[in-house]
Design a protein around this nucleic acid. Structure first.
Length: 493
RNA sequence: GGCCCUAUCGUCUAGAGGCCUAGGACGCCAGCCUUUCAAGCUGGUAGCACGGGUUCGAAUCCCGUUGGGGCUACCA
């Protein structure tokens, strides 16, 4: 059987991690089996459809590199791939079900529906439609519809007896009592289908072989299965994945911070890290692998190693993974990725385009210090800024020279002098000179180096000192050291 | 309330009756290294929800309890 899977987001908002994980598994499964990955927009709810959402969903998928073989933008053998453009096929299916006696028209008003729902809830009976119109004769229902101003829906005629067995690829057969299922709506009054009808009709039309979806769909799976039977279709293989929980163990929602995929891009996560993290939420390669390239994942991915237990989204783990992937980048790749963030974050007085090439030697040192791309700004701004650095004198003294400007000044002056003799200007030469200085002053290196670090970077936390000085160059170093010396000589300012 | 899913360290997981005095990773703690911060290395902390079965033997199979989650729309 050829593998054909679809991701069917509904354009009602952002693509969040839950949906993304489903898309990822779809994509991986298709790629692993050399199958086809289809993007289908499920916009059957006119009221909730958000303009622009479809574009943003596609942007998110593209950012992750999840490319589709058939979709609304590129077409395909089963176009269109937007459900709002496939209305005739759902209407045809509804007509077929009406004719075969598997469905019936219903003219109940929403007021009546609300009323019976509330009554049933109070009576501790399962809510759901009571089947009022199911028993009406043709003339009666025609009359009722006329009374409602011509509005009607089409409902599925659930069997009152028996059970429906849903085969799930992850948990085996799941049994549902038919009598507990109500006559759900297939075709709404506005002529649009519900998810139930639309997905079944489309999955059949598009020859979908496997349906991956969140397990919140499991309770309605029997409805779908029964629909397949009623329409005479061969059902696909269902794979209901466990859902992703938020840190509070509830269903992941907007409340849990960045849930939109694009927001992860904005925050400086690498797509490869997000993918690696997400795929491990509900799937494992073996008993020890935690880091994989996309190719490795595609090669190893399959249903047999998917889990069934709900998983919690752990930001710390994502961050650690992102840091890990960041370190694997080459210096050039690293800056290429960081550049958009630096453009945005660095002060305007730094000329654009940013001259990052001279900093390339520092990249590995920065890479092992950041978890997210925006943090790079803090490690490079002092290399690029044209003006004097902004810092407090207390910073300059650090812990080693606390309330001791004279001590700090001695260190700075000593460094100025020691550095004068460094030629050529190399990391090794600088290190030798400054270590020599610390020895002469009979102070621990850390004590001596702190004022120097603050003088040249403006901060306590920075890349390693010697490399920083190397890249900064003798002129700027001496300029900054002089400024620091001046400030220390006037402790009151 | 009803129905469905589910239950291994705090988190993600390995485990498909003996290989388990339960393995890996993130986190956390300690030590080493050390010019700040990191990274790295070493070690440590911590778990089979509970109760019954089945079996020579159960984290693994069955039943129940409890916990967690989901669904219960003319939303998806």
């Amino acid at each position: 059987m050829s593998v054909r899977v679809r991701f069917g987001p509904s354009p009602t908002g952002e693509l969040h991690v839950g949906g993304l994980r489903t898309a990822l598994f779809d994509w991986l499964f298709a790629r692993h089996h050399g199958g086809v990955f289809i993007l289908r927009i499920e916009d059957t709810d006119q009221k909730r459809t958000v303009p622009g959402a479809e574009d943003r969903i596609m942007q998110g998928l593209r950012w992750l590199g999840l490319d589709w073989d058939e979709g609304p933008d590129i077409g395909g053998p089963h176009a269109p791939y937007r459900q709002s453009e496939r209305l005739p096929s759902y209407q045809a299916a509804a007509t077929q079900l009406l004719a075969s006696g598997h469905a019936y028209r219903c003219a109940c008003s929403s007021e009546r529906l609300d009323r019976i729902r509330k009554a049933k809830q109070q009576a501790k009976r399962p809510p759901g439609y009571d089947g009022h119109c199911r028993t009406l004769s043709d003339t009666e229902i025609t009359e009722a519809i006329a009374e409602q101003g011509g509005r009607s829906v089409v409902r599925f005629k659930m069997p009152h007896e028996g059970a429906t067995v849903v085969p799930d690829a992850l948990r085996g057969d799941v049994v549902f009592e038919n009598r507990l299922l109500d006559d759900h709506v297939l075709l709404k009054a506005d002529g649009f289908p519900t998810y139930h009808l639309a997905s079944v009709v489309d999955d059949h039309a598009m020859q979908i072989s496997h349906v991956f979806r969140g397990d919140e769909w499991l309770p309605s799976a029997p409805r779908h299965l029964l629909l397949y039977h009623a329409l005479g279709y061969q059902p696909p293989i269902f794979v209901h994945q466990p859902i992703i929980l938020g840190p509070d163990k509830g269903k992941l929602s907007k409340r849990h911070g960045a849930t939109s995929v694009l927001e992860y891009a904005d925050r400086g996560y690498l797509p490869e890290a997000l993918i690696n993290f997400l795929v491990l939420l509900g799937w494992s390669k073996d008993d020890h692998t935690t880091k994989m390239s996309l190719d490795e994942i595609v090669a190893a991915f399959d249903i047999d190693r998917m889990g069934v237990t709900p998983t919690t989204f752990d930001h710390q783990r994502l961050d650690a993974m992102n840091a890990d992937f960041l370190r694997d980048l080459t210096p050039q790749q690293f800056f290429d990725r960081a550049r958009p963030f630096l453009d945005r974050l660095l002060p305007a007085d730094i000329a654009r385009p940013l001259a990052l090439d001279p900093l390339l030697p520092l990249a590995p040192l920065i890479q092992e210090r950041v978890k997210l791309l925006p943090e790079v700004a803090d490690y490079v701004d002092f290399f690029l800024t044209p003006g004097p650095l902004d810092y407090a004198n207390a910073e300059l003294m650090g812990k080693g020279f606390r309330d001791n400007p004279a001590g700090a000044l001695a260190a700075v002056d000593g460094a100025r002098e020691a550095l004068l003799a460094v030629d050529p200007w190399t990391t090794e030469g600088i290190e030798a000179a400054l270590r020599g200085l610390a020895e002469r002053l009979q102070l621990k290196p850390g004590v001596v180096f702190t004022p120097l670090r603050v003088a040249v970077t403006g901060k306590r936390i920075a890349p390693p000192l010697f490399e920083t000085l190397t890249v900064l160059g003798p002129d700027r170093v001496s300029e900054r050291l002089n400024l620091a010396a001046q400030r220390l000589a006037r402790p009151d300012d």
